[in-house]
Write a protein that binds this DNA or RNA. Sequence first.
DNA 1: ATGTCCTGTCAAACAGGA
Length: 262
Amino acid sequence: MRFATWNVNSVKARLPRLLEWLEQTRPDVLCLQETKVAADGFPEREVAALGYETAAYGQGRWNGVALLSRVGLADVRHGFDGEPGFPDPEARAVGATCAGIRFTSVYVPNGRTPEDPHYAYKLAWFAALRDALAAQPGPAVVAGDFNVAPTDDDVWDIKVFAGATHVTAPERAALAALRELGLTDVVPRPLKGDRPFTYWDYRAGMFHQNKGMRIDLVYATADVAAAVRDAVIDREARKGKGPSDHAPVVVDLEPGTPGSPV
DNA sequence: ATGTCCTGTCAAACAGGA
């Protein structure tokens, strides 16, 4: 089976690109973030025409996550137990079981700056996610925009990030706490250059200079991680007219493993 | 580096967020 994660930065603005990409890439499951639509505004008909069921969790202008699947979509859950809000819950996590794997699409709070209340919210959100995942049995994939670069090599120039979010020790400790549950960071291959960036700012030609960050992550339980045949960043989707500022991460699993039809 | 893009308000430029 093939699954993917993509922060589309508005599913409405990205719809032509999304449909074209789905037809070309044909993932069995797609985790979407920053859909920026309420659930009733999600283009379900358009993706259904390509064979996908939708679980959309949205609130309108900000945030918004979704799961698309053509291998079943069971036990859909919006958010998770103990999820904090700011102050109210936001549309940042949606889970469903697809072909025997529990998928969760996550859009972690940005944090803004280490001094901002949104930063404490980000860490609290991570801690609650960890506790919710600890209580969850079976093969699982947690994928999405984590808004943390796991190592200094996961940003284009660590010196530029002095005093900034996405690279601080507490944020990285939050990722480590997820790995301590038994989750593996499935690091994708960059198809150009030597660093697996998934995000490049729209401004100042950052993409063309490959000044990016790896903040879109795939965390998988050991059984799923052991079945990974390949994982790549589809940088072609970051090119051309009207791209998202994030590229999709695409993961292929060996046949006959969790997630493959029996 | 603060250079772009997206949404919503409102009917053209802003504000706010990333």
